[in-house]
Computed example of a mutant assay.
Amino acid sequence: MEAVPTPPPPRDDLTTHFMKNMATPSYQEDLNMAIIGGVIAVVFITLFSVVALIVVYLYKNKGSYHTYERPDADLNGSVEMEELSSKGEKEEYFI
């Protein structure tokens, strides 16, 4: 009869003392960590989206406003007013 070879004993130098004593997390702990990570990711994505929307809004509405005054380059308006008074008509002033 031949002797059945026995497997070699496990080598202790492949792992550290910390890894030998480390407990592997259970399924419930893995699930909790995944949920926490997902919530944190959603919060960061939401914050990034809100900041991006604010930047786009401020870029599109960068302080433009409308005035109802004539532009300074329109010199014809002042010339027309001077021509009206030079016709010799009497002007009336109400006080």
Results as ranks from 00 to 15, higher is better:
Y68W: 12
I40Y: 12
I45A: 01
Y65K: 02
A52K: 06
S78W: 15
Q28I: 13
I35T: 04
G77A: 13
Y68P: 03
A41I: 06
S85V: 14
K87W: 08
V56F: 14
V79S: 08
V51I: 15
T67M: 00
F44G: 00
T46H: 01
V42W: 08
T67W: 06
F44V: 02
T46K: 00
E82N: 11
K87N: 06
L84M: 15
Y59Q: 10
D72W: 10
L31I: 11
A52F: 14
K87P: 03
K62Y: 13
V51C: 09
P71N: 05
L31G: 00
F48Y: 12
N76K: 06
V43R: 00
S85F: 12
I35V: 07
I54C: 14
L58K: 12
M33K: 10
P71Y: 03
Q28Y: 10
V42Y: 05
L31R: 03
G37N: 01
V79R: 08
I54L: 15
Y68M: 00
R70A: 05
G37F: 00
I40K: 06
L47Y: 09
H66R: 10
G63R: 00
M81Q: 14
I54V: 15
G77S: 13
V51F: 15
S86G: 05
D74H: 06
R70M: 10
Q28N: 07
I35S: 03
F44L: 04
Y68N: 07
S64L: 06
L53F: 13
S64P: 05
S85G: 12
F48C: 02
K62F: 15
G37T: 00
E83C: 02
E29N: 01
G37R: 00
V39C: 05
S49K: 12
D30Y: 11
E69K: 10
L31E: 11
A73T: 15
Y68F: 12
L58D: 13
Y59E: 07
V43P: 01
D74M: 10
V42H: 04
D72C: 01
D30F: 11
S86M: 12
G37E: 01
Y59I: 09
T67A: 01
I35R: 06
V79D: 14
V42A: 10
N61E: 05
I45F: 02
Y59P: 07
F44S: 01
V55F: 15
V42I: 14
E80C: 03
E83A: 12
V43W: 03
A41H: 04
I36N: 09
G38P: 01
G77D: 13
I54D: 14
V39G: 02
V39L: 09
V55G: 11
R70W: 13
L53T: 13
V50W: 10
I45T: 08
V39A: 06
K87G: 04
S85T: 13
E69I: 04
D72M: 04
H66Q: 04
P71V: 11
V55N: 09
N76A: 11
V42G: 02
A34W: 11
V51Q: 09
I54P: 09
S86P: 09
I40D: 14
F48N: 10
S64E: 12
V50Q: 09
I40R: 08
E29I: 07
E80D: 05
E69P: 00
T46S: 07
L58V: 15
I45G: 01
E29F: 05
E80W: 06
A34H: 10
G77M: 09
Y59D: 06
S85M: 12
T67E: 02
Y57C: 03
D30V: 14
E69T: 05
H66T: 14
V79W: 14
K62T: 10
I35A: 03
